[in-house]
Amino acid sequence: MARSRNQASSGAVGVPRVQAVQSAARILWTVGHSGARGMTLNQLAQAVEVPKSTVLRIAQTLVDEGLLEREESTGLFRLGIRTLELASMVLETLEIPRVARPHLEWLSEQTRETVHLCVLDEGEVVYVDKIESPQAIRLYSRIGRRAPAHCTGVGKALMAFLPSTERRRLVEKRPLKRFTPNTITDFFQLEKELEQIRQTGIAYDREEHEPGVRCAAAPVFDLTGRVCAAVSVAVPILRLPPGRLEELAGLVKQATQAISEALGYRAHAKRLAGSRLDVRPGP
Results as ranks from 00 to 15, higher is better:
Tyr140Trp: 15
Ser108Tyr: 00
Tyr127Asn: 15
Arg174Ser: 13
Arg169Pro: 01
Ser73Met: 13
Asp121Met: 10
Glu166His: 06
Val154Gln: 11
Pro181Arg: 03
Gly14Gln: 00
Ser88Gly: 14
Gly75Asp: 00
Gly35Arg: 10
Val63Ser: 05
Glu113Val: 07
Glu92Asn: 09
Ala157Glu: 06
Glu122Phe: 03
Thr40Tyr: 03
Thr185Phe: 05
Leu245Lys: 04
Arg145Thr: 10
Gln22Phe: 07
Gly212Lys: 14
Cys215Thr: 01
Thr152Trp: 07
Ile137Pro: 12
Val220Thr: 10
Ser4Pro: 04
Glu69Met: 08
Val154Pro: 03
Ser4Trp: 06
Leu84Val: 13
Ser34Lys: 05
Glu95Gln: 15
Met39Gly: 01
Ala216Met: 06
Val55Glu: 04
Phe77His: 03
Ile143Met: 12
Arg168Lys: 15
Cys151Trp: 02
Ala249Met: 08
His103Leu: 14
Gly250Tyr: 06
Gly243Leu: 00
Thr180His: 02
Leu117Glu: 02
Ser164Glu: 15
Ala45Ile: 00
Arg17Ser: 11
Thr74Ala: 08
Cys118Leu: 09
Gln7His: 04
Ser4Lys: 03
Gly225Arg: 04
Gly123Ser: 10
Gln189Asp: 11
Arg206Ser: 14
Cys151Ser: 15
Lys173Leu: 07
Cys215Asn: 05
Gln135Ser: 12
Thr114Asp: 00
Arg146Pro: 04
Gly250Gln: 07
Val235Glu: 02
Gln196Phe: 00
Asn6Thr: 06
Leu62Asn: 01
Ile259Trp: 01
Leu158Ser: 09
Phe221Ala: 06
Thr61Pro: 02
Ser9Lys: 10
Leu91His: 13
Met89Leu: 14
Ala25Arg: 14
Thr54Cys: 08
Lys173Glu: 11
Glu191Leu: 03
Ile58Asp: 03
Arg3Glu: 12
Leu117Asp: 03
Val50Leu: 07
Ala25Leu: 15
Gln46Ser: 14
Gln60Cys: 01
Leu272Cys: 12
Arg198His: 10
Ala269Gln: 10
Arg271Lys: 13
Leu41Arg: 11
Val128Gly: 04
Met89Cys: 11
Thr40Phe: 06
Lys270Met: 14
Ala217Ile: 06
Thr180Ala: 04
Gln46Lys: 15
Ala149Pro: 01
Leu251Ile: 02
Leu107Ile: 08
Ala249Arg: 01
Arg206Ala: 14
Cys215Ala: 04
Thr111Gly: 08
Val279Pro: 12
Gly250Asn: 10
Leu238Asp: 11
Leu263Val: 01
Ala59Leu: 01
